[in-house]
Amino acid sequence: EEWNVSLWGKRRAFTEHVEKLAELVSEKTGGEFTLNISYGGLSKNRENLDGISIGAFEMAQFCAGYHRDKNPSITVLELPFLGVSTLEEERKISQALYQHPAAIADLARWNATLLMPSPLPQYNIVGVGDAPATLADFEGLSVRATGGIGAAMGAVGAVPTSMSATEVRQALDSGVVKAVAFAPHAHMSFGTVETGKWWTTNLNPGTVNCPVVVNTDALNGLSDAHRDALLGSVDEALDYYIATYNGATMDAWGPTLEEKGIAQVTFADTEIAAFKEAAAGPAAAAWIADNTARGLPAQELYDFVTGMIGQ
């Protein structure tokens, strides 16, 4: 049995759980069940859910913010200033949300079953030009920020622009955006640290949610042994992912900033509180209103997620 897996870009910290999963599954089934990972050959990243729905491949990764209308339920985890502080917490809350009936039903429209998250740390901003000292300096700054982070930046007067990660470098080089919100691994692998002049250490406006899903029919069609091998490997794959991210990636981050001479901007607590005040409440309210209109139990999802924070 061979499954095709559609990822994109190149192998990086963000894809290590899928690589690990492939290794574990093959090991446990004595090579009878293999995951054949393709980086970009099977689909465009924004169409991975379409491919799952069609049945063109059996497993795929995508980010909720690429297409809000395709997966509204899980965009709740992209709301700004939720207060998630570690990768472990992000993982725990994501896994719980993925079991919520509303999320299951949402993804079932694509014949998809949520398998595991790709927990990412809080985003922060790398930018060119003068470093902002206060929130007021964000006024009019064009920044690449998707989903809830974009909304948060908009709330303090910045101009958020969305583009996929692969287009970011050119946009920053050419002045289309002056700043980019990414997780550290992406700042390194998409080259923003090459031209960036400053980095915000504690803005922590939020993160994106990028699940790995499987085609439901294919999952149901697995023999019990193969399904157990797959589902039984998820936790170990995620442990490995988080260890890699907290280890190698974060270890490389500080020295990278030093080496490239990037100034580290730290905002005062009062500034952060003011930012949260301006961004968090309105964004959450808007999200709840929009998604209630769409027929989701939006308030319930929001309470479900926020109720788990810090627990």
Partner: peptide
């Protein structure tokens, strides 16, 4: 100039 500013500043666009 929209790809690269020879005078060292930002390019003007895409």
């Amino acid at each position: 100039f929209f790809v690269y500013n020879p005078f060292g500043g930002d390019a003007w666009g895409t």
